[in-house]
Design a protein around this nucleic acid. Sequence first.
DNA 1: TTTGTTGCAAATCATTTGCAAGTTC
DNA 2: GAACTTGCAAATGATTTGCAACAAA
Lengths: 138, 138
Amino acid sequence: MDAEQAAKTKLKEIGMRITPQRVLILKNIIAMNGHLTAEEIHRELPSFITLATVYNNLKYFAELNLINELSFGSSCSKYELADTSHYHVICESCQQIADFNYPLLNEVEYAAAQVAHFKVHRHTLEFYGLCQECKKKK
Amino acid sequence: MDAEQAAKTKLKEIGMRITPQRVLILKNIIAMNGHLTAEEIHRELPSFITLATVYNNLKYFAELNLINELSFGSSCSKYELADTSHYHVICESCQQIADFNYPLLNEVEYAAAQVAHFKVHRHTLEFYGLCQECKKKK
DNA sequence: TTTGTTGCAAATCATTTGCAAGTTC
DNA sequence: GAACTTGCAAATGATTTGCAACAAA
């Protein structure tokens, strides 16, 4: 299935109206497969799509758990598809984000829920440091 | 040692000039011992201290690892003293943050550093869900 | 007395919103 | 046709900055 079909399918699954704007935004997130800012996504889209529309839809998508909003580090949020489980390694110098695949810490999540008396449904784990290039520069 | 002395000592340790503003800001963070926004800290201070001064100093303190900046969840950052190691449990409904004491995941940090080819010096772990009260309301 | 810090006001920048016109179901 | 989306432009709100006066070392 290509990115366009995948985008439409996902929109249908979560019960959102299928507009050309949404299909294009989501298709790009799927195709680019990274950690993108609203600006970066907008830049790839045909110019009839407003940045405001991008922001509004990213917000909806995130609320419906279609994408994750990553708000650590730099001043603006980054977005990624929510279909794989992984953690993040972030360079404090150049802000790049690398994915880190590792078994989910479900026992820790369970312990946190017990101790804090929360109903926990997800967790994130971020590592901060210097990437290889920035390491060399210092 | 009281909060005021502790604040002065910490400032000296990291080699910052000791101004009344800094002592008061840091003293309040120590005394209030929570997860505070710049606004909340500012509100507790005598009125001759500007919000801009609070922001600027929080930024310095965070860069020098005296405090942690927590930028997840809500629109504005929260700050906490950086002297204890713990993780966070966040309520997605009311935004409250609870601390969760748990042994640090050093082996995972090591694995992440190896895999990503980063020099990692710290990590954070956040659990998202609903606190007891918000759980009831739903 | 040199260098860093503050207050003030204005600027910035990411993100959100109101509303009328256009679309989807 | 009813309910939802969009574009546009303006608003918002957190955070930062320039600069002259002031304070710490």
